[in-house]
């Protein structure tokens, strides 16, 4: 009888282990799709259109990983997550990678059992106010109500800022960005605060986008990037280098349209990146054409940026910090060799 019960207990206990530690690559290959955590809907970063097709800068990271691993950028299953849900979804193994405008912070990197695989967009916390308010600087916001999304690094940044400047505010924290925007529109709050890129995205969703302005202040560092579970170094490398392939593609001038030509006739660096020479793909446990597929199907960083948040999009965000290091920004890929 004891034996039986210990068998049952052991079985149950084994069933209660957290998500698998290693072998994400094998899991994804076996499943045939990549499970990618994105936002519930944020213009330019991860957004679903009427046909159910996802697009955005964060979505392109999911697509890049799928292209590198499965050879097909469309083999992605998107899981929309609120700020509160995202880390648990990754820890429990529900998603393979989290690409949801998530700030790389020390605490998250070191205590959640997660690893940040790079930076897709360098951002910072900003403020959006109604034009009618006549406010020109965030310092004038003493006593105001703030609409914020719960479970974000914004909650912490804003608290620091008001304390430093010895002014007061009341946070009204909502679960989703839709609620946050609705709170701002109804006048429940005087200002909405979030990463600045998201302010532009939320603004175009307002009934009267011209009635709101984004204040000049940027009060924190919010480097946004994809996240994976700790303890699976191979998978960590794959996500890190899939993103780097997009950035390196821009550095080398490889685009989705000239990629075949660069593979055939390009410089040695082009050939190494695209799998014509060397063993970069093999070292990752992927096909030699991993980066070729990324750039062919998703595009290089510049293509993705302009299409989703830059000149080719309604957001019209300029490259700023997110330009290449050669062009006055801080975007930089480790050496592709």
């Amino acid at each position: 009888m004891i034996k039986l019960s210990s068998l049952i207990v052991g079985g149950l206990a084994a069933g209660l282990t957290l998500g698998a530690q290693a072998g994400t690559l094998d899991d994804v290959k076996k499943r045939g799709t990549l499970s990618c955590g994105v936002s519930t809907g944020l213009a330019g970063f991860s957004q679903k259109d009427e046909k159910g097709k996802w697009s955005g800068l964060d979505v392109d990271v999911c697509r890049a990983v799928a292209a590198a691993v499965l050879g097909d950028a469309n083999k992605v299953q998107y899981k929309p997550l609120t700020a509160k849900e995202r880390f648990t979804a990754l820890q429990s193994g529900e998603i393979d990678v989290l690409s949801r405008n998530t700030t790389w912070t020390h605490t998250r990197d070191t205590s959640l059992g997660l690893n940040f695989a790079g930076v897709v967009y360098y951002d910072g916390t900003g403020f959006m106010v109604s034009k009618k308010l006549g406010v020109k600087s965030a310092k004038e916001l003493d006593g105001a109500n703030a609409c914020i999304q719960a479970g974000t690094s914004t909650e912490l940044a804003i608290s620091d800022y008001f304390r430093e400047n010895k002014i007061k505010y009341k946070p009204v924290t909502f679960d989703t960005s839709d609620q946050t925007r609705a709170g701002f529109e109804s006048g429940r709050c005087d200002f909405l605060t979030s990463d600045q890129s998201q302010l532009y995205a939320l603004r175009i969703g307002l009934k009267d986008p011209k009635g709101a302005i984004v204040l000049p202040e940027v009060i924190s560092k919010e480097p946004l990037g994809p996240v994976v579970r700790q303890g699976d170094d191979q998978w960590f490398n794959i996500v890190k280098w899939s993103l780097s392939a997009m950035i390196e593609g821009e550095e080398q001038g490889v685009t989705s349209s000239n990629v075949a030509d660069k593979l055939a006739n390009g410089k040695p660096g082009n050939k190494r990146l695209l799998g014509g020479e060397g063993e970069l793909g093999k070292n990752l446990g992927l096909n030699p054409d991993w980066a070729y597929q990324v750039i062919k199907q998703v595009g290089n960083y510049s293509e993705s940026f302009e299409r989703n948040v830059g000149s080719g999009s309604p957001l019209k965000i300029s490259r700023g910090l997110n330009a290449l290091w050669k062009d006055g920004g801080i975007l930089y890929s480790p050496a592709m060799r």
Binding site: T107, S111, G113, G151
Partner: peptide
């Protein structure tokens, strides 16, 4: 539920 199971859980993990 909101401030503790929601935000505190999320900030501390």
């Amino acid at each position: 539920f909101n401030v503790f199971v929601g935000t505190a859980l999320n900030q501390t993990g």
